[in-house]
Simulated scan of single mutants.
Amino acid sequence: MQKLLVSSCLLGNPVRYDGQSQNLLHPGLETLKQQGRLVAFCPEVAGGLPTPRPPAEIKAGRVLTKDAQDVTVQFAYGAEQALKLCKKQGIRHALLKESSPSCGRNTIYDGSHSGKKISGMGLTAKLLTDNNIEVFSEQQLPALFAALAEK
Score class of each variant (00 low, 15 high):
residue 1 M to H: 14
residue 1 M to N: 12
residue 4 L to Y: 13
residue 4 L to N: 09
residue 5 L to P: 01
residue 6 V to F: 10
residue 7 S to F: 08
residue 7 S to P: 04
residue 10 L to C: 07
residue 10 L to P: 02
residue 13 N to Q: 12
residue 13 N to L: 10
residue 14 P to R: 02
residue 15 V to G: 03
residue 15 V to N: 02
residue 16 R to D: 05
residue 16 R to Y: 09
residue 17 Y to F: 11
residue 20 Q to K: 13
residue 20 Q to N: 13
residue 21 S to P: 02
residue 22 Q to G: 09
residue 23 N to V: 13
residue 24 L to P: 00
residue 26 H to C: 01
residue 26 H to T: 04
residue 26 H to R: 05
residue 31 T to M: 13
residue 31 T to N: 10
residue 31 T to F: 11
residue 35 Q to P: 03
residue 36 G to H: 01
residue 37 R to P: 04
residue 37 R to D: 11
residue 37 R to N: 11
residue 38 L to Q: 06
residue 39 V to P: 03
residue 39 V to G: 07
residue 41 F to Q: 00
residue 42 C to F: 06
residue 46 A to P: 07
residue 47 G to S: 06
residue 48 G to V: 01
residue 48 G to M: 01
residue 48 G to I: 01
residue 49 L to M: 07
residue 49 L to E: 00
residue 49 L to V: 00
residue 53 R to C: 05
residue 53 R to A: 05
residue 55 P to G: 04
residue 56 A to E: 14
residue 56 A to N: 13
residue 56 A to M: 15
residue 57 E to F: 11
residue 57 E to Y: 10
residue 59 K to F: 15
residue 60 A to S: 13
residue 61 G to Q: 14
residue 63 V to W: 08
residue 65 T to G: 12
residue 65 T to R: 12
residue 65 T to Y: 11
residue 67 D to K: 14
residue 67 D to R: 14
residue 68 A to I: 12
residue 68 A to D: 15
residue 68 A to Q: 15
residue 70 D to R: 00
residue 70 D to W: 02
residue 71 V to A: 01
residue 71 V to F: 00
residue 72 T to R: 00
residue 72 T to Y: 00
residue 77 Y to H: 13
residue 77 Y to F: 08
residue 77 Y to S: 08
residue 78 G to A: 08
residue 79 A to Y: 02
residue 79 A to E: 02
residue 81 Q to A: 09
residue 82 A to W: 06
residue 83 L to I: 07
residue 85 L to H: 05
residue 87 K to W: 08
residue 88 K to I: 06
residue 89 Q to S: 08
residue 91 I to D: 05
residue 91 I to R: 02
residue 94 A to H: 05
residue 95 L to S: 05
residue 95 L to Y: 03
residue 95 L to P: 00
residue 96 L to P: 00
residue 96 L to F: 07
residue 98 E to K: 03
residue 99 S to D: 14
residue 100 S to E: 08
residue 100 S to Y: 01
residue 102 S to C: 15
residue 102 S to I: 11
residue 103 C to Q: 13
residue 103 C to H: 14
residue 104 G to A: 06
residue 105 R to A: 15
residue 107 T to C: 05
residue 107 T to W: 05
residue 107 T to D: 08
residue 108 I to D: 02
residue 108 I to P: 01
residue 109 Y to K: 03
residue 109 Y to V: 05
residue 110 D to H: 10
residue 110 D to G: 09
residue 112 S to H: 09
residue 113 H to A: 08
residue 114 S to C: 12
residue 114 S to Y: 11
residue 115 G to F: 00
residue 117 K to A: 07
residue 121 M to Q: 15
residue 123 L to F: 15
residue 124 T to G: 05
residue 125 A to P: 03
residue 126 K to M: 07
residue 126 K to T: 12
residue 128 L to C: 07
residue 130 D to A: 13
residue 131 N to K: 11
residue 131 N to M: 10
residue 132 N to M: 14
residue 133 I to P: 00
residue 134 E to R: 15
residue 134 E to I: 14
residue 135 V to T: 07
residue 137 S to G: 08
residue 138 E to Q: 10
residue 140 Q to A: 04
residue 142 P to R: 06
residue 144 L to M: 11
residue 145 F to Y: 09
residue 146 A to H: 14
residue 147 A to R: 15
residue 148 L to M: 14
residue 151 K to P: 07
